[in-house]
Amino acid sequence: MRNDNQIKLKKKIHLSRTYRRLKVDRVSQNLYLFLWVIPFLIIFLYTYSIITFFLTDLAYFSLLPYLSMDEMGKVYSDFLPYFGGVYHLTLPDVVAPDNRFIAANMIFSLIIFLVCVSGRRSGHPLSIFVSMAVFIHMVSCIYFIFAPDYFPYTNSDYSELYIKQQVGIWLSFLSISGLITAFLGIGSIFRRIQTFIAIMLYSFSFGIIRYIVFLFILSKVSVLYMALMFFSFGPFFDFLYLVYIYGLYVEKVISVSESQEGKGVWEWS
């Protein structure tokens, strides 16, 4: 026989998706935000100099088989006031690409561009993305044809640019992933922390590997690709894994909230 408590539960009418909402758990939201996200952010602000120090070391040793020790160095540049600067690797000076190499790039870019804008591919999101990337690359090619001496960056400049941008990405991602898991998440703090750590681990790994690969390309292939790498394979791609890992978290939230176990997460209207 049922007890009275079981009957009491039936007093609720379980409404449809139209006006249901999730219960706010302010305690766990605040605990997570103030004891995890904000401390993490503060620690990062005071340690990004050290992080870039080690990152530069890592890049140095990874590039050592391809560049001599004399060609590389580690320097410190100012970045955010109060929190300090960043370390980055210095690399050999840029030699402007020769015209044949630029022309080959131009022709190749043009072919890709034509492929993207012709036939059924025209107007497809991927084609538009590639067209825009190719456009940036063509601008770069034209620049190097007409004004190679005025190109404002050395490889070392780019290295500095990259590190500053990467620290910007980490700061933004710490804030964005902290906010979305704190305020747009439900359920255990553990799962939120898991998501947060996964995003940041991915971000650190991706940022470091990309740095080494980009420096390698610039030093060993051509500086011509600098703009393409900066604009097309920069922060835009970082958002992809942020969205994906958050998606995995939301997927879990949906599974729980739609199960018998998760009925308690809902409130009505």
Binding site: P125, L126, F129, M132, V243, L248, I254, E258
Partner: peptide, 25 residues
């Protein structure tokens, strides 16, 4: 994501990264 949680739509949330190129579109 919030809408999908409310609608109770499972799995499709994993398609979110594929929306990326819509930005350029």
């Amino acid at each position: 994501s919030s809408a999908l949680i409310i609608d109770g739509v499972k799995k499709d949330v994993l398609l979110l990264p594929l929306l990326t190129f819509n930005f350029y579109f």
